[in-house]
Amino acid sequence: MSALAWIAVISLAAWGWLLVGQGFFWRTDQRLPRREPLEHWPDVAVVVPARDEAAVLSVSLPSLLAQEYPGRAEIVLVDDGSTDGTADLARALSERLGGLPLRVVSPGEPEPGWTGKLWALRHGIALARERAPEYLLLTDADIAHKPDSLRELTAAARANGLDLVSQMARLRVASGWERLVVPAFVYFFAQLYPFRWVNKAGARTAAAAGGCVLLRTEAAVRAGVPESIRQAVIDDVSLARAVRSSGGRIWLGLAERVDSVRPYPRLADLWTMVSRSAYAQLRHNPLLLAGTVAGLGVLYLAAPVALLVGAAVHDTAAAWAGGLAWAVMTGTYLPMLRYYRQPLLLAPLLPFTASLYLVMTVDSAVQHYRGRGAAWKGRTYARPEAAPDR
């Protein structure tokens, strides 16, 4: 066989393994586990770190204020140095809409060794713990919750004995670039951290989705968070690892009651979202970067190239192997497109989307070596920490 045919066969074999051996990552059936009504509903504090979020807060905060929770709950919004009136808007919304009680605090600039979000969470959690809540709901300022979201999260945690319950919010998909890139973002995340593996008791794989994390306060204290992960850029994965390594039980799945309202209308917006932390996920390791680039090339680009080139030069083996690999790849992407209610005709375009992610990852490394590191909301972390193994 030709070299192209061998590469196509390797790609096909890799997709055969991914289909059955990577925790069935492509399935979208990991939803909130069983819930049972509680006789006594525990106290919950909702902690919302917010930096320059006035544009989305008018949509997300009302959904938290309107939570239909049978127990005692309050919201602590941590204004992380905003310059757009985030704190004033939050107070105005609370006064006008009522609902759950809201406290707004401003801790000032992060101390050395802290990323901004975790610095905000530190102060929000400390303030919330003054009233000894049993659970903390850590949710981003761009996340909107259905009215029963907090109740369902708490019931699931109690019914299943979970210390951390995290749902990956359904991200906004409206523009053409969002349709092309966003479902793939969640697909790639699930491929890297298969939800079934995360949810298996005693498993080594640990991950969470930072937009929606219900955390037992006792588990947070036991894991020493957020202090133990204060430098993490990929804070959600770091949090999950810290909780699991300290003996906690964790769960991660796709959301049905939680949605992100942050728009990413342009490719540049999506590019920033991915590239700001991609190289941190690779632990700033050039060898891991090279391996990732090679792996993405073999997995996602080799198949269509082998099919098209093989057909053009009459290399039957390359064309067949490439075509089969592309077909398996396309099939595994269909459930995620259904979850996002997107046209299934987008599935064969996954190699193109993967090539965008490949270039974004390389750009993330370039920015790191230029000293720009991870940048977000006007802050740059020149040498951020990757999610640590504990």
Rank of each mutant, 00 (worst) to 15 (best):
M1S: 14
S2W: 15
L4M: 09
A5P: 05
A5C: 10
V9W: 15
I10Y: 04
G16W: 12
L19D: 04
W26V: 06
W26E: 06
Q30E: 15
L32A: 05
P37Y: 10
E39I: 00
H40G: 00
P42K: 12
V44N: 03
V56L: 01
L57T: 01
L57D: 00
V59E: 12
P62T: 04
S63I: 00
E74N: 00
V76H: 03
D84A: 05
G85L: 02
G85I: 03
T86P: 00
T86C: 03
R91V: 03
A92M: 07
L93V: 02
G99Q: 06
P107Y: 09
G113Q: 05
G116C: 03
L118G: 03
W119F: 01
H123N: 12
E130I: 04
E134F: 06
Y135S: 12
L136W: 07
L136M: 08
D140N: 14
D142M: 14
I143N: 13
A144F: 08
P147N: 11
S149G: 03
R151K: 15
R151G: 05
A159V: 01
N160D: 05
G161N: 07
S166W: 08
F185M: 07
W197M: 11
A203R: 15
R204F: 12
C212W: 11
V213H: 14
L214T: 06
T217L: 12
E218F: 08
A219T: 04
G224R: 11
R230V: 10
D236W: 14
L239P: 07
V243Y: 13
R244V: 06
R244E: 14
G248F: 06
R249I: 01
R262Q: 15
P263F: 14
A268K: 14
D269V: 08
L270M: 12
M273C: 07
R276E: 10
A280N: 08
Q281W: 13
H284D: 03
A302Y: 09
A302L: 05
L307C: 10
H314E: 15
T316D: 14
G323F: 07
T330K: 09
T330I: 09
L334P: 00
L334G: 02
P335V: 11
M336E: 05
Y339H: 04
Y339S: 01
P343H: 13
A347Q: 01
A354P: 00
L356T: 04
T361F: 08
D363T: 13
Y369T: 08
R372T: 10
K377R: 15
T380M: 10
R383L: 12
R383N: 13
